[in-house]
Design a protein around this nucleic acid. Sequence first.
DNA 1: CCCCTCTCCTGATCGC
DNA 2: TGCGATCAGGAGAGGG
Length: 305
Amino acid sequence: MPELPEVEVVRRGLADHLVGRTVTGVEVLHPRAARRHAAGDADLIGQILGATVASAERRGKFLWLPLVHGGEPPGVLGGEPPDLPGVLGGETPDTAVVVHLGMSGQMLFGEGVDTHLRIRVRLDDGTLLRFVDQRTFGGWAVDPLVEVDGAALPASVAHIARDPLDPAFDRAAVVAAMKRKNTEVKRVLLDQTVVSGIGNIYADEALWRSRLHGRRLASALTRPALGRLLDDATAVMREALDQGGTSFDSLYVNVNGQSGYFERSLNAYGRDGEPCRRCGAIMRREQFMNRGSHFCPHCQTVPRR
DNA sequence: CCCCTCTCCTGATCGC
DNA sequence: TGCGATCAGGAGAGGG
């Protein structure tokens, strides 16, 4: 399940391979991959074809590729990277391809035969970019870029809060927003309009580190406790990103398991029935929000309610 | 506005 | 061996 660290690994790979490249071919092979593009497959293709990728951006779990359209390819044909981020050949992008990996999406470079190939893009240097997605929860769309709070965001990403790795992330404001929520704290961690990038795995890990049960009410926790929880979520995602750099190939993220990180470093997710690494109590799993929640019943006491 | 439930999808796995 | 049921969950639509 790609959450912030896995998506950031993908973003870096896209930045390395796509910036300055011009799209010479696009095929949409499965209608669900373009369902978020309201104007339809043909329009999506038309907006990407011939465009040049200016950069590779991310907020939370959303990726996007700002596009420069028309005319001369920018002066990077000799391989010179653009020196102004987000600006290529003097043009400012006003649209972007938004990519969400959903549950199982992968962005892969090179020729390949994939059962779940959804979109293929040919680039001006001859390479092929493949969007492969088994469960089809992911997809692509082309959106106008809009300015929100000093950031240029695709319209469909405008409602997503900054993530903890964003230099402009406002920790105090997020803690205050968490405190205002009259709902269980795990819901708040997963609410991408409060803080983005955290999914089910890192929510469980952060709650374990903070010794909090996810069903505790956010509004009943102290601001310092909420701050520590946010810091724990940030730390676990940073550590995962660090390990992602070594245990994942930068372009071939295995979202279905078997990475070094998932084998070694998870303390909560998927460890039900095993001893807590802190106290030895047997970890438990319960249903919450139609998904699994993993916790230590000794370290993370269940609220009465 | 706020909160919460449901739905989309397909491969792996399990029990009979 | 086959087959149906269950499970996994990000995000948004829609209900209360």
